[in-house]
């Protein structure tokens, strides 16, 4: 069995550690072992005090996002063999406060997420007797890409704007807002736009670096969503200047 060194960030505030440090572990690996498998090996066989988040091991839950050799990745999708002969450096996702070891605090994101109302907003609900809100495959295609987001925070770790300004709602929250704006069943676009088109928090803070879309493990294009959102906001503002808009 091959072996590789994993340098894992440790931060234990209960042990008066002032800042994170790297701890090296020698782990065995097979060809199909992921970085998450390596961490699980450390946790199970070498050092049970290591803390990190994980759940599904198949790129669906979005909980195992970490920095792998400086790149934001889902550790269940990053293979150790791709980093041989090593070492593989594993750190908590960039830009978020570190709670312990590889666990980050995502409360800020959750606050932003709720504010953009990522659910179907209806001004008027039709009676249940009238049936469901139907949608054609073409209408589904318009927003489907954005519905693939798994809230893994990889895009936030790739975004330098979020790193510099935590008030920025960030790529995933805005892409999810756009996902519902583009949904033919939704009527909440104006409410979301009012929130996202003003101040530090919204779409204008994005400078289109584009790394959020490059890093996304699910092929979502948050950067594109934000730029399209800007176009919509600009057209909306232009519309308010035209006399026809009053009618």
């Amino acid at each position: 069995m091959n072996r590789i060194t994993m340098e894992v960030a440790r931060y234990r505030p209960d042990q008066e550690e002032a800042e994170p440090t790297l701890q090296a572990y020698e782990v065995p690996y097979e060809r199909e072992w992921t970085v998450l498998d390596g961490l699980n090996h450390i946790k199970d066989e070498i050092d049970g005090t290591l803390s990190y988040r994980w759940s599904c091991r198949m790129g669906v839950c979005g909980s195992c996002g970490m920095m792998v050799n400086g790149e934001p990745k889902l550790t269940c999708g990053a293979f150790l063999v791709d980093h041989a002969p090593g070492p593989v450096r594993v750190e908590p996702l960039k830009s978020f406060p570190i709670v312990r070891d590889l666990v980050v605090d995502i409360e800020e994101f959750l606050t932003h997420l709720v504010r953009v109302e990522p659910w179907l907003v209806r001004n008027e609900e039709k009676p249940i007797a009238e049936g469901e809100y139907r949608q054609t495959p073409d209408e589904l295609d318009i927003y489907k890409q954005y519905s693939m987001c798994i809230n893994c925070m990889i895009c936030y770790a790739a975004c330098p704007v979020y790193a510099l300004d935590p008030q920025f709602a960030g790529p995933a929250a805005i892409a999810l807002a756009q996902r519902y704006n583009l949904d033919s069943r939704d009527q909440g676009a104006e409410r979301r736009l009012a929130h996202l088109s003003s101040g530090h928090e919204g779409i204008w803070a994005c400078t289109f670096v584009g790394e959020c879309s490059v890093a996304c493990p699910k092929g979502v294009d948050p950067a594109g969503a934000i730029q399209r959102y800007k176009l919509t906001a600009a057209m909306d503002w232009l519309g308010t200047l035209l006399p026809l808009a009053e009618r």
Binding site: F96, I98, D105
Partner: peptide
């Protein structure tokens, strides 16, 4: 711009 988070969380500056 200071980040929020739990009291003992380690905050990194860009």
């Amino acid at each position: 711009l200071a980040r929020s988070g739990p009291p003992h969380a380690y905050r990194r500056k860009a």
